[in-house]
Design a protein around this nucleic acid. Structure first.
Ligand SMILES: [Mn+2]
Ligand SMILES: [Mn+2]
Ligand SMILES: [Mn+2]
Ligand SMILES: [Mn+2]
Lengths: 223, 223
DNA sequence: AAAATTATTTAGGTTTGACTAAATTACATT
DNA sequence: AATGTAATTTAGTCAAACCTAAATAATTTT
């Protein structure tokens, strides 16, 4: 009998998925930092996840973990819930994109598959959440996303904003104010090699904006 | 510092509230039955709730418990969440009244006060849930409800259905089919002293219906 | 290559909220 | 008043998921 996938486990798997996304394996300390849990506790849980039947992660001492197929499915299930919920909160209850994260983080573990299906239906089966993150499909495959960090663009390049990968409400509010939101068309006016600052023009906005790399590394665009 | 009100505790308080409603105190065994927990475990929790600061229940050995003011506020908080959620699920996501209970039972512990407020706003501050149960107000007072069991009516009496106090999906579907839903106008055509059966006519429905006391004790009406 | 630093694991412990089995109390009946 | 039954409590366990402190392994610096 497959072990129960508790809320705690769902959180581990979700964060492992995100740490795995850029190819590497998820380290004990990175996970501990993201989950706000002591590293020793993470080790214990990783061993448990690796010994579960079916195994949810591949674990070798001192080498971090990667999700197995089972683990990935479970992770995508949670991520789908999270992103659909964020979309639902914005579209149906008038939340702004900086307010949805906490709420979705709690609800994602609790809603039924029926609730998920009804939300998806009511929202017209959206493919991206309010931050532009792709929403895994109902059969749990993650849509391809070919966007790249805004920070990688150079002078005169033009692109469309796809997603913002940061949950900080203050940053999200700021980005909304200056029009840097999914689907915004932007042009790079200047790149400063010293500090990495980008001067950009957002289509429909009055003046140019200068963004530091702390921001441009978290905004993804498609050329 | 007030003790944390966990999901478990919220469930205890909610059920104690309901058992207290008809005046009496909530017995260990009744609670155990409702919560699907061994009586011994309930005793342990009741002692904990009584020793909490502030105390959430009044407990004396072998005499069951009653909620304190603090306990009642916490209970009403959960009940408000539950009933608003049920209403939201029906009005916004197309659930039927027999489908909402389980979902609301999980979500009630997890939504924020902000979510609660937005739901109430979106629904136009409803005063009753889909089953006709009164929804505690935002400041946590339970609206008065003067309805009485349908079972207490006799031949020729007329009344309006107010609420159905039963979660059994099959029963709820059946009642909907025969038109016994909140606001339905009914007239008692016959009362059988032997088995307690009531023959009733539901306004707008073709034929009379005979209901046993297992049903009429769970349907509340207002004369 | 050794030392120092950082990352990770092991060992032992706590809290929450359950459980079972046995003991006790309360209540009903004779 | 004594006995039998039902309700409740006590006592002792357990599992999940966290913790801290100490030990070990890996990595970086000297
Ligand atoms: Mn799902
Ligand atoms: Mn998001
Ligand atoms: Mn509330
Ligand atoms: Mn209800």
């Amino acid at each position: 009998m497959p072990e129960a996938i508790t809320q705690s486990i769902q959180d581990y798997l979700k964060h492992i998925y995100e740490l795995n996304e850029n190819g590497g394996s998820a380290s004990t300390n990175d996970l501990a930092a993201r989950l706000n849990i002591a590293p020793a506790s993470v080790t214990g849980m990783l061993q448990k996840l690796a010994n579960a039947k079916p195994a949810l992660v591949i674990y070798k001492k001192h080498q971090g973990v990667k999700l197995t197929k089972s683990g990935e499915k479970a992770a995508l299930e949670v991520i789908r819930h999270h992103r659909l919920l964020e979309t639902f909160l914005v579209n149906t209850l008038g939340y702004t994109w900086d307010e949805v994260h906490c709420e979705a983080d709690k609800l994602e573990h609790v809603i039924s598959e029926d609730f998920e299906a009804r939300m998806a239906e009511a929202l017209g089966h959206p493919t991206r959440d309010p931050h532009g993150e792709p929403i895994p499909t109902a059969d749990l495959t993650m849509p391809a996303d070919s966007s790249c960090p805004l920070a990688s663009l150079r002078t005169d390049e033009t692109a469309t904003v796809r997603k913002v990968v940061d949950d900080d409400p203050a940053l999200l509010r700021h980005l909304r104010e200056i029009g840097v939101i999914p689907d915004a068309k932007i042009t790079v006016k200047n790149y400063s090699a010293f500090d990495g600052n980008l001067t950009i023009k957002v289509e429909g906005q009055r003046s140019n904006i200068v963004l530091g790399s702390a921001i441009t590394n978290h905004v993804y665009v498609e050329k």
